[in-house]
Design a binder for these strands. Structure first.
Lengths: 210, 210
DNA sequence: GAGTGTGAAGGCATTCACAGCC
DNA sequence: GGCTGTGAATGCCTTCACACTC
């Protein structure tokens, strides 16, 4: 039963395929697509799309294309979209607040279970129907799947340690620091200043070379 | 004068090096580091670090390591941190608000020049000292370097078109859609649901394989 | 001796190109 | 005829390993 593990790049594309397929199926009420149409929409080479989709199983029909319905359920299965995932958000500054509101307003298979904060002025208030809990009293009785870290950089590692000690399996980190985590934790980070630096680096290069 | 263009991955690492070097130099008042120390801090292979840094020029001294000061100024130059970049933020929902506040509170070489929104209730109010302008009256007289798109998916392409028509050079997109842009525009995207999908995909795989 | 700089090797992701099937 | 599925080829990024310098 040991399948070969897929790279993060592949999962990233599945997420894009899923959105696109859903739109075609639900919003446009269509039945069929093909790798070229997906390629045009997502700007991903069509043979890469075929390769990705073939990893799920023989999804397509030669000469015909792909059934949107079976694509949808195939990708749902591989991304775990047929399950509900428990989220915990730590940190309710600007970014944490935005993330909480953004997630709360979107329907998805991600469920915000608990929200934690350190600032006593915020504790026990409510945001979008979620009580803000005291980080000092971390609730151990709950299975959290994914922890979202939105605290200042200086506190991010401490929060990560607490999450790891309470059995978190994956972390999405918005603080601009590299966290030290056990190998077994799945990890992604979102870093706005890093993104701006990449863009300004490329702009700088272009300016220097006309 | 045509140098070889660097990949986004390299710029991404420069951004990380820069942060790390700055911390050592300013917070820890140190003079010297080496590729092994950087490697331990950033979990990047030391030979990759040496390769990256050698692209800037002969930065290190064999047997000695790197001068933090010259690293700092070398990376500043390549990332354009010796310049100020003009930002325009479009969309002041939850995410746009958070981004604006986050950037406004951090000192950096990124300058928020204008903020735009469509909602008449928000126009002409102020957030963090920035007047919110009407998207219908886009100010043409300003040179914007980087446009930040934080509007709902359905409007993102329209906003992108306006930015492109007004000569934007780079776009950082927070809306979960693939934008169609001219090749010449530098582009990065931040997509929270995509990140969650990647994590839940990996968690799903692990669950299925113990 | 210690740590950089870099050709060469290795590994991984993407694209090519076409046989195979509807 | 049209589009999938996939070996083979390509290209890019990272790591190895060591000559070179301080």
């Amino acid at each position: 039963m040991k399948e070969k593990t897929l790279s993060e790049l592949v999962y990233e594309r599945y997420s894009l395929y899923y959105r696109c397929v859903n739109k075609m199926y639900h919003k446009e009420n269509r039945e069929i697509t093909d790798s070229n149409e997906l390629s045009r929409n997502l700007k991903i080479d069509s043979s890469l799309i075929r390769r990705d989709l073939s990893l799920i199983g023989k999804m397509g029909k030669r000469g015909m294309g792909y059934s949107l319905l079976s694509l949808k359920s195939g990708i749902e299965e591989i991304l775990g979209k047929d399950k509900t995932w428990n989220l915990v958000i730590v940190g309710l500054g600007n970014l944490g607040n935005a993330i909480l509101r953004y997630l709360a307003h979107s329907s998805s298979n991600y469920n915000i279970i608990k929200v934690y904060e350190k600032d006593p002025r915020k504790i026990n208030t409510k945001v979008e129907g979620h009580v803000i809990n005291d980080m000092e009293h971390f609730d151990t009785g709950i299975r959290y799947d994914i922890g979202i870290i939105a605290v200042p950089s200086t506190e991010a590692q401490g929060v990560a340690n607490i999450l790891v000690n309470h059995g978190i399996k994956a972390i999405l980190n918005f603080a601009p620091v590299k966290l030290k985590l056990p190998e077994s934790i799945f990890y992604r980070e979102v870093d706005i200043f890093k993104e701006l630096d990449i863009l300004s680096g490329m702009l700088t290069f272009e300016m220097n070379n006309h």
